[in-house]
């Protein structure tokens, strides 16, 4: 055992530093596994340092990190988790903007189509057109929507959308902000109001109760859910536009 101690003393800090950097590069593995992995290697590294000098270590073995990477891949372990995910997210914004702009355009197209569909509901020859454009708008939004909620969050990062966000979350210290906040607070009332066109076809009375009450219930549920999962906006906003234009139609009394 005296020999062991001597060997360790002979090896100065360069070898130890090399080994501890290797250990650090493997630190995501279970400690016992790291010890086993390094057992053979440590001897080899120390031997090499004794034979050729410590300054030769990196020349002969490469960096401790590269050496550790080769060791773990040969041992059948996955590469270490990358701590640099966020740096990869930077070019990602530029790469993925296409899908996001497409989805935003899709939302606008679908909403406009729903609006026109509702407004032209009496002129049967144009309604299929708006139905079609609405579906196209929805279709081009799909590549983003299938990505899940992260996709919608990425849309909020688009410069155009970012500029609009303060209006959605108004600064209530200003008068305009207060007005906006008040309008937004009326949202649940809208959830009830938008049921009207649905029961409107039944011309009131019994239909108002049979259809209207469950419809209002569903509408409020949808309202709350769309606050949670923003992907529903791609259906809820066009639906709102449709209902809105139909309400106008009722209120204005066949004006369109």
């Amino acid at each position: 055992m005296q020999d062991v101690a001597d060997v360790r003393e002979d090896d100065g800090s360069t070898t130890d530093r090399f080994l501890s950097r290797m250990r650090a590069a493997l630190s995501d593995l279970p400690p016992t596994e790291v010890n086993e992995l390094l057992e053979d290697t440590e001897e080899h590294v120390r031997e090499l340092a004794r034979e050729h000098g410590e300054d030769q270590l990196e020349l002969r073995l490469g960096s401790p990190e590269a050496y550790a990477a080769e060791l773990r891949s040969a041992a059948g372990y996955p590469p270490p988790p990358q701590p640099d995910e966020p740096t990869r997210a930077l070019p990602k914004d530029q790469r993925k903007d296409g899908v996001e702009v497409l989805a935003l355009a899709g939302l606008i197209v679908t909403t406009a189509s729903a609006l026109l569909f509702g407004a032209s509901i009496r002129s049967y020859h144009t309604t299929p057109l708006f139905l079609l454009t609405g579906l196209v708008g929805l279709a081009i939004s799909l590549p983003l929507l299938v990505r899940g909620q992260d996709g919608v969050r990425a849309i909020a990062e688009l410069p155009t959308v970012k500029a609009l966000l303060p209006f959605l979350n108004p600064d209530q210290s200003t008068f305009a902000g207060k007005v906006l906040a008040y309008v937004y607070s009326l949202q649940p009332a809208w959830w009830l109001l938008r049921v009207l066109p649905v029961v409107g076809f039944g011309h009131g009375g019994l239909a108002l109760i049979i259809v209207g009450v469950p419809a209002a219930f569903v509408s409020v549920l949808v309202g709350y859910y769309s606050r949670v999962d923003r992907r529903t906006l791609w259906l809820v906003v066009p639906a709102n536009a449709l209902v809105g234009s139909m309400l106008m139609y009722f209120v204005l009394g066949y004006a369109l």
Partner: peptide, 15 residues
């Protein structure tokens, strides 16, 4: 043959 590959392989075959 790279020495790290050999040591890693030994460990994997042992496991």
């Amino acid at each position: 043959v790279a020495d790290a590959s050999v040591y890693g392989t030994l460990r994997r075959l042992y496991k």
